[in-house]
């Protein structure tokens, strides 16, 4: 039976920790209600740096590393996105330069809920309580951002955005209980599918890390995790998606975060403090393991598989309302 072991509990923040991301250099970034962004070395668990906390006036709700870079995007309830980076190529040098603020992106009317980079790092998606998703084109330096699309079809607060790992597809999850799929049409982005099924806010979604299947998992306030599958892409504007399955019920309350691992596992966390791992078997999806009280009595806001390091070691990171970031080792056997 597979198992989860807590490697380290990092008390990083004075208030709720919302979001974590790890870049391919092994640097973890975290964002919190205390408005701070911290950078932590995932090997030594040492704090490398605290970014200038005057950049944001409110909660840092979401952080995301640009793929294969040291450029970080952070979305805040103050309605802006900050972009951070440094000249130096890596974090190995002892006398590292400070990470500096490269840009502040304004445009959203109010609280930004999530930021996400496309796989090639050229596009940044942001979403907000203003019900919109914006797509920005970034220059190589991460200093200039041009808005290339404003997507306004959601009827409520947009909670989460995520890109496909290789295709130009974006998924957005909303308080309107739907997930919308967007694709590049001519010179603008269009909604090509609406995934209806959840009976509450969809808090997050994630694409399967596969180049053959196009599937998406989604976690909702209704306590379920669902799998959606792209049935038909006629190359036109509309795509046909079907709800393939509902994962075995393992949460008693809202599911806040879902993450699909490169090996095919799905992890979910939520309001009940549980961390659940699901695996696809010949007979469908099964619950591989459940870990209770991942952040004590607090809610667990985010879960993320970490690809960094040896292929044999699978890590999971969770962020909780206790301000902690917990690092877990997942044992497949």
């Amino acid at each position: 039976m597979a198992g989860l072991k807590l490697l380290k509990s990092l008390a990083l923040h004075d208030d709720k920790c919302w979001s974590v991301d790890v870049n391919n250099g092994g640097i973890m970034a975290t964002g919190s209600t205390d408005r701070k962004i911290k950078l932590v070395d995932i090997r030594s668990f040492q704090i490398i740096e605290e970014l200038d906390d005057t950049a944001h006036k409110k909660t840092v709700r979401s952080v995301a590393w640009r793929p294969h870079s040291n450029i970080l995007a952070a979305g805040s309830f103050d309605s802006t996105v900050s972009i951070w980076g440094k000249d130096d190529d890596g974090y190995n040098d002892e006398n590292d330069l400070e990470t500096e603020l490269l840009a502040i992106i304004e445009g959203h009317e109010n609280e930004i809920k999530c930021v996400a980079w496309s796989h090639d790092g050229e596009l940044l998606a942001t979403c907000s309580r203003d019900k919109s998703v914006w797509i920005w084109e970034a220059d190589e330096m991460g200093e200039e951002f041009e808005c290339i699309s404003v997507l306004q079809e959601h009827s409520q607060d947009v909670k989460h955005v995520i890109w496909h790992q290789s295709l130009p597809l974006l998924a957005s999850s909303s308080y309107d209980d739907t997930v919308r799929i967007w694709k590049d049409c001519d010179d603008d982005w269009e909604c090509c599918a609406v995934l209806n099924g959840h009976e509450g806010t969809v808090w997050s979604s994630d694409f399967e890390k596969s180049n053959s299947n196009v599937r998406l998992c989604s976690g909702s306030d209704d306590g379920t995790v669902r799998i959606w599958c792209l049935e038909d892409d006629n190359g036109e504007y509309e795509q046909e998606w079907i709800q393939e399955s509902i994962l075995p019920k393992a949460h008693t309350r809202a599911v806040y975060s879902v993450n699909w691992s490169p090996k095919g596992y799905i992890a979910s966390t939520g309001s009940d403090g549980r961390l659940v791992i699901y695996k696809e078997s010949e007979d469908g999806w099964i619950v591989e393991c459940i870990h209770e009280l991942t952040h004590g009595v607090y809610e667990t806001n985010m879960v993320k598989w970490v690809e960094y390091g040896s292929k044999d070691v699978i890590l999971l990171i969770t962020a909780g309302d206790d301000g902690h970031v917990n690092v877990w080792k997942f044992d497949e056997n």
């Binding site: 006036k57 840009a103 502040i104 304004e106």
Partner: peptide
């Protein structure tokens, strides 16, 4: 979207300055 880019170019620098945030320009 295009109005946004125009507006941001006309007003962004001013508002960032107003908030006293230092944005590094490396390029």
């Amino acid at each position: 979207r295009n109005i946004q880019n125009l507006v941001r170019k006309l007003s962004q620098s001013a508002s960032v300055k107003k908030r006293g945030i230092k944005v590094k320009r490396r390029g």
